[in-house]
Nucleic acid binder design. Structure first.
Length: 436
DNA sequence: GGTCAAGGCCAA
DNA sequence: TTGGCCTTGACC
């Protein structure tokens, strides 16, 4: 992952990049842009751009074009209604709770970055890979097989060989895709063409373990996803000349879910506006969180009673009950938010603290808009919305922890070569391998 | 009483 | 006109 050596705690004004002095008119800005926005609104000023209305605004050029500066103020989220018509001084306005939640979220974000950095440092200090590996499994009334726990050190010849013969670079292909159709074509190229249109899944597909069938039935509306998964499983069976193992089946499903997540992201509001390079950086940073959220969401929406459970364990088998409990809590909490799950996904997508984004200010303003949207949704949907909003933020932290466990386990499987080849999940894990 | 986001003031 | 600093006052 792309982590800077030092997290920049000094906020920059999203309009001009100057030092932020506090919340002003809805967002964090510098004193200069605060004053500029206030004067413009209070005095009903109108400006004209002598260029093409796309002037660059930074600390040195912000005085040159007030038109573009004011447009940028509005674009990054400064609120006209926060300027008081009666010019009353002092006091608080209606944005107070929003500022409070935004601060809490930023604090949480910093804590997450810190935790992630500590974890990476901890991983780097470990001599063997098995000392801190965690396991993730999708179970259905079964227990984890102790044999599934890692036993191979990461610097073994087999692992090194696997790293050398890594799959083709999916990221480069993604960069060349300009729309969802091309992306779907790429996904098909990665997983192989599916022939389910002329065949009956029930008669022609490989023998799939019961738990995977139940998993597929979790989302009866997602037929295309089911077809893709069956197609991949058929291909996996043909390649290995035997039935896919339970783990391979789960891996294929996770990979296909990941493909659908990427497709959703690339066509979603805000994200599609970003440059492809920024899209890739964000996705590389949060794919595992989105994947875990997707799995939990499907569990909540389609299989809450006696269905599949996402269970996280440590290497010590008997320690997993506590984490399991928290995972179930996440599910039930998210259940009450099921209509806003895509907003939650947007938060995860844009919450990633990725440095060196070309459009980092746009991403920051989107973060605020998405958080605002979720707050509005919770305010409109429940009298206890403030508690729910705070709760959700806490569970986002839990989601992040779960995703780290999932990544670790899949990463180990990736290194040990136990996974199906040539897929998106492998590419993400291979990228992780290069970054850490 | 402290905090902090409003508006106001004024030198450059 | 700008932008740094000051004053104000609701909220905690």
């Amino acid at each position: 992952m792309n982590f800077p050596c030092e997290v920049d705690l000094q906020e920059q004004c999203p309009v001009c990049g100057d030092k932020v002095s506090g919340y002003h008119y809805g967002i964090l800005t510098c004193e200069s842009c605060k004053g500029f926005f206030k004067r413009t609104v209070q005095n009903n000023k109108t400006y004209v751009c002598v260029e093409n209305q796309q002037c660059k605004i930074d600390t040195s050029k912000r005085k040159r074009c007030p038109f573009c500066r004011f447009q940028k103020c509005l674009n990054v989220g400064m609120r006209l209604e926060a300027v008081r018509a009666d010019r009353m001084r002092g006091g608080r306005n209606k944005f107070g709770p929003m500022y409070k939640h935004d601060r809490a979220l930023k604090q949480q974000k910093k804590a997450l970055i810190q935790a992630r950095r500590l974890r990476i440092e901890s991983n780097q200090k470990d001599v063997t890979f098995t000392s801190n590996i965690h396991s993730i499994a999708i179970l259905h009334n079964t227990k984890l097989n102790p044999n599934q726990l890692p036993s191979q050190p990461c610097n073994s010849p087999a692992v090194l060989q696997h790293q050398i013969t890594s799959p083709t670079n999916w990221a480069m292909k993604l960069e060349n895709c300009s729309n969802s159709v091309e992306l779907a074509a790429l996904a098909e190229a990665i997983i192989g063409p599916h022939h389910t249109s002329s065949r009956s899944i029930s008669t022609q597909s490989p023998r799939i373990p019961q738990l995977e069938i139940e998993f597929l039935h979790c989302d009866p509306h997602d037929l295309q996803l089911q077809k893709n998964i069956f197609s991949c499983l058929q291909q996996e069976q043909a390649c290995r000349h035997r039935e896919p193992s339970t783990f391979s089946s789960v891996y294929v499903m996770a990979d296909q879910l990941l493909c659908s997540i990427v497709e959703w992201a690339r066509t979603s509001i805000f994200f599609k506006e970003l440059k492809v390079s920024d899209q890739m950086k964000l996705l590389h940073s949060c794919w595992s969180e989105l994947l875990v959220l997707e799995i939990i969401s499907r569990q909540v929406l389609y299989g809450t009673d006696g269905g599949l459970l996402l269970i996280i364990t440590d290497t010590e088998m008997y320690l997993f009950s506590g984490t399991t409990l928290s995972c179930v809590q996440v599910s039930y909490t998210l259940n009450s938010f099921n209509k806003s799950l895509k907003i939650v996904s947007q938060i995860v997508l844009f919450l990633s603290d990725v440095k060196e984004l070309e459009e980092h200010r746009f991403v920051e303003s989107v973060q605020q808009q998405v958080e605002g949207a979720l707050l509005k949704y919770t305010l409109a949907s429940s009298s206890q919305s403030c508690n729910r909003f705070t709760c959700l933020q806490l569970y986002l932290s839990e989601l992040h922890s779960l995703s780290i466990l999932a990544e670790d386990y899949l990463y180990y499987k990736h290194l040990s070569g136990e996974v199906p080849c040539n897929n998106l999940l492998n590419e993400m894990l291979h990228a992780k391998c290069c970054w850490t």
